[in-house]
Amino acid sequence: MNIRNNLIRLISKNERLLIVTKQIRIKFLMYFGKLVSDKAYIKLQYRLRLGKKLNLANPTLFNEKVQYAKLYYRNPMLKSLVDKYEVRKYVKEKIGEKYLTKLYGVYDRVDDIVFDKLPEKFVMKLTNGSSYNYICPLKNYDTQTEIEYRFKKWITVDFYMLGREWAYKDVKNRIICEELLETSDVNGLNDYKIFCFDGVPKLIQVDFSRFINHKRNFYTPEWEFIDEEVEYENDSTAKIQKPKNLEEMLKCAHILSEGFPQVRVDFYDVDGRIVFGEMTFYHGAGYLHFKNPKFELEMGEYWNV
């Protein structure tokens, strides 16, 4: 038991170092972002991260259209749909509450969390932002300390200033606590990211082996493997079975995405149960590295801006 606890503390120390390093970078970007316009900031970031000039006058590539959407797509509905708590109302209204995770609480501040009332397992996230999550597979005496340390830093981040993604502008940061999704599948829980254009699902991205050797496969809505790589390597030999409820998943994605030129709708398949993940309007913030430029152009052609 002591060995296990010491190992957990060592991992926590390393994670805290990463958090501090990330916070320094974020504070710099937030400060620098205040000095320049949205367009200038986006053009510079695009050049630095992808090594090429951004074409806003006639965007054709997927990444270019993400940047264009940041600057010019102003649908007020996005303000609630990017919020992990507010989007639940939209999902409930459109496809039903059964597709939602169990909600344990939503908090304006870390100090509002009553840890004794939380279950033994849960996931805690920022409502406004990406990758700011704390997974708790088993609550212990270090849980409260870790959550307070992380979220008191994370909740101060202005996600709009980081990427100039308009939908996040003036959206308040909060903390949401939900059920921890688990599966009996030895390969873990698959995350199905469905790219929809004008309400039509065109592409499915599956990320797997995230914590060992992150891989990413693409499939058609008919579940045909697409031999393309974006940001991560693919694996054509990976035994990712077509979900038995794929048609239902695609139907849900279609309903949720109707009325939007482009949105990525995410679902989990938990032993046959479809669970909504999130809706993303700026996939990868528009800075993804496509191994094949033709594939990026093809994805861009789906999107009518």
Rank of each mutant, 00 (worst) to 15 (best):
L100Y: 10
P119G: 04
D111I: 15
V110R: 12
L126W: 03
R88A: 03
V87N: 07
W166V: 02
K79S: 10
E86P: 01
S131M: 15
E148W: 06
F122I: 13
K152Y: 10
T145Y: 12
V123T: 02
E165V: 11
I135W: 02
A167K: 02
K84E: 11
V91M: 04
N133L: 14
N133A: 09
E93Q: 10
Y160N: 01
L138N: 08
V171C: 12
Q144W: 01
E165Q: 08
L138R: 13
T145Q: 12
M124F: 08
Y99S: 07
L78P: 01
N75H: 01
R164A: 02
E148S: 09
Y104P: 05
V106L: 14
Y104A: 12
I155A: 09
A167L: 06
D116L: 10
S184H: 09
E178A: 04
V157P: 01
A167I: 08
F122E: 00
L126G: 05
Y68A: 00
Q67I: 00
T101K: 09
N173T: 10
D116F: 10
L162P: 01
I95M: 04
Y141G: 10
K121G: 03
E179D: 08
A69I: 04
F151C: 11
T127Y: 09
M124Q: 04
I113V: 13
E86R: 10
I95C: 07
Q67V: 00
Y85Q: 06
K169Q: 06
L100D: 13
D111M: 12
E165P: 02
E120L: 07
K70R: 05
Y99P: 00
Y141S: 11
Y68P: 00
E178P: 06
D116C: 11
D158A: 06
D108N: 13
T156H: 09
L138M: 13
L180P: 00
C136G: 10
Y149L: 12
R174E: 04
Y160M: 03
I147K: 05
D170W: 08
N173A: 10
E120G: 07
T143G: 05
L100N: 03
C177E: 00
K169N: 10
D112T: 10
Y90C: 03
I176H: 04
L118D: 06
L118N: 03
E182G: 09
V110Q: 12
D112C: 15
G163S: 09
L103T: 08
K94D: 08
D170V: 03
L138H: 05
E97P: 04
E120S: 04
R74I: 02
Y104L: 13
Y134I: 07
M124K: 13
K172P: 12
I175C: 08
L162D: 05
V91G: 05
Y90K: 11
S131A: 14
S184P: 07
Y149C: 12
T101Y: 07
V157W: 03
P76M: 12
